[in-house]
Amino acid sequence: MAAGDLLSNIELISPSQFAKEKIQAVQDYALLSARAVANLFRRPLYVADMIQQADLIGVGSLSIVLLTGFFTGAALALNSANTLQRFGSLTLIAQLVSVSMVRELGPVLTALMVAGRNASGMASEIGSMIVTEQIDAMRALGTDPVKKLVTPRVIATVFMLFFLTILADLLGLFGGAVLSTLSFGIDWHQYWSSGWQILVYQDVFTGLVKPVLFGFIISTVGCYYGMSAHGGTQGVGRATTQAVVASSLLVVVVDTVVTRLLMTVFGTR
């Protein structure tokens, strides 16, 4: 009897129900993203909100992005030097750091940092507006919350992530330079010229397309989880965590796909 009671209290979700819910979520996410983009072409455009968000994302994340870039570059140089020394080609260190930073580590690590900081911020801010009925109030006052809240965040994140990534790349190269010259006696000028010369159009293009995609992913996922928050403050906490997990995961998955895709487009070196 007790076991029966227990069983009837557990909500059993059938696999098909589960799949239906997931598909619905993906659909809702796609719809939200599409609306966020479509709103770019509709008046009013909330410029002040965009600038405020850009400030929050850009200036707020600047220090952690710079620090991450610097230490990643330095660690990269350190690890590469270890391997390169075995082959007697220590001079390749600048090339290695440069290509890895620009193509891969700069974009991905910057995106992960911004995802941790801002996808969570967006999910919790919009989520608490949902549970306190502020989003309903906004609609009641004749304003589209997607236009007012989501679109400015998407634009600001894409824009700022692009520049943060460039800064992270530069700081990574700089970190590598500092470490290489201090620990391995590499010539400072030679480091920079070889690090610069190795980069081809494809590397730079790959490295700059990624932050645009990642910025879009981070902001739309953050806003999506905020918008679908339910169940009071606990629900907001849950949405925040899910936003960070989902956006980080999507960033690394999309990174692999895009890298592969662009290699195909440009022809593998």
Partner: peptide, 17 residues
Amino acid sequence: FELRRKVGIVFQESALF
């Protein structure tokens, strides 16, 4: 949105921004 201009609402917990 147009119609809601003619309808005001006061939410339970005020829902001020």
